[in-house]
Amino acid sequence: MTLPANSPRPAKHRLVAAVLASAAAVMALTGCAGFEYREDICSSGEYPVLSVGGTGSACVPDGQEPPVGFVRYPQGKVPQQVGDTWDVYWDTHTLDKDGHVVDAPDAG
């Protein structure tokens, strides 16, 4: 089936193609920077805790105390998202049994 030359359909198809091409160009030029995904350390309703003397961590339900061998992160030094400043920091630091920040023994 051939559409008449004055049919609105070909113009609509050209418009859709132009919009898609423009969107692809914008994404290619920006590297999709506006769509960066960051994973949260814990789920909603949980908070992160650090293992004493090591770099291990866990998530604890809000309102519950940390399990034995874990403590809350120091105020203002709590990692929120994977790869954020404090998440990276706690890869090489930990808390000792007295609550002092020390270099992690397994930090390399």
Rank of each mutant, 00 (worst) to 15 (best):
residue 1 M to F: 02
residue 2 T to Y: 06
residue 3 L to S: 03
residue 3 L to A: 12
residue 4 P to W: 00
residue 4 P to N: 10
residue 4 P to H: 03
residue 6 N to Y: 13
residue 6 N to Q: 12
residue 6 N to G: 03
residue 7 S to V: 01
residue 7 S to T: 01
residue 8 P to W: 04
residue 8 P to V: 01
residue 9 R to D: 03
residue 9 R to N: 05
residue 10 P to F: 07
residue 10 P to R: 04
residue 10 P to W: 05
residue 10 P to K: 11
residue 10 P to Y: 04
residue 11 A to T: 03
residue 11 A to F: 06
residue 12 K to D: 00
residue 12 K to Y: 03
residue 12 K to L: 13
residue 13 H to F: 09
residue 14 R to A: 13
residue 14 R to K: 11
residue 15 L to V: 06
residue 15 L to K: 11
residue 16 V to T: 07
residue 17 A to N: 05
residue 18 A to E: 11
residue 18 A to P: 01
residue 19 V to P: 01
residue 19 V to I: 14
residue 20 L to V: 02
residue 20 L to A: 09
residue 20 L to K: 07
residue 20 L to E: 02
residue 21 A to Q: 00
residue 21 A to M: 04
residue 22 S to N: 11
residue 22 S to H: 06
residue 23 A to T: 08
residue 23 A to H: 04
residue 23 A to N: 08
residue 23 A to P: 00
residue 24 A to G: 09
residue 25 A to M: 13
residue 25 A to K: 07
residue 26 V to I: 12
residue 28 A to I: 05
residue 29 L to H: 08
residue 29 L to N: 11
residue 31 G to H: 04
residue 32 C to Q: 12
residue 32 C to I: 14
residue 33 A to W: 15
residue 34 G to N: 00
residue 35 F to G: 00
residue 36 E to I: 10
residue 36 E to N: 05
residue 37 Y to R: 13
residue 37 Y to N: 10
residue 38 R to D: 03
residue 38 R to N: 09
residue 39 E to Y: 04
residue 39 E to A: 11
residue 41 I to K: 10
residue 41 I to Y: 01
residue 41 I to T: 08
residue 42 C to M: 07
residue 42 C to R: 12
residue 42 C to Y: 11
residue 44 S to A: 14
residue 44 S to D: 14
residue 45 G to W: 01
residue 45 G to V: 02
residue 46 E to P: 00
residue 48 P to C: 04
residue 48 P to I: 01
residue 49 V to F: 02
residue 51 S to L: 04
residue 53 G to A: 03
residue 54 G to C: 00
residue 55 T to K: 06
residue 56 G to E: 10
residue 59 C to A: 02
residue 59 C to V: 02
residue 60 V to Y: 05
residue 60 V to K: 05
residue 60 V to Q: 08
residue 61 P to I: 02
residue 61 P to M: 07
residue 62 D to R: 11
residue 63 G to V: 01
residue 63 G to E: 03
residue 63 G to C: 06
residue 64 Q to R: 14
residue 65 E to P: 02
residue 65 E to W: 00
residue 65 E to D: 15
residue 66 P to M: 04
residue 66 P to W: 01
residue 67 P to A: 05
residue 68 V to E: 14
residue 69 G to D: 08
residue 69 G to T: 05
residue 69 G to I: 05
residue 71 V to K: 08
residue 71 V to I: 06
residue 74 P to E: 09
residue 77 K to S: 13
residue 79 P to H: 14
residue 80 Q to L: 15
residue 80 Q to M: 14
residue 81 Q to D: 13
residue 81 Q to T: 15
residue 82 V to K: 15
residue 83 G to N: 13
residue 83 G to I: 05
residue 85 T to D: 15
residue 85 T to H: 14
residue 86 W to C: 09
residue 87 D to C: 09
residue 88 V to K: 15
residue 89 Y to R: 12
residue 90 W to N: 12
residue 92 T to Y: 10
residue 92 T to A: 14
residue 92 T to I: 03
residue 95 L to P: 00
residue 98 D to M: 00
residue 99 G to Q: 07
residue 99 G to F: 06
residue 99 G to R: 05
residue 100 H to P: 00
residue 102 V to S: 02
residue 102 V to N: 08
residue 103 D to P: 06
residue 104 A to S: 13
residue 104 A to V: 02
residue 104 A to I: 06
residue 104 A to R: 12
residue 106 D to S: 15
residue 107 A to S: 12
residue 107 A to T: 04
residue 107 A to Y: 04
residue 108 G to D: 03
residue 108 G to M: 07
residue 108 G to A: 12
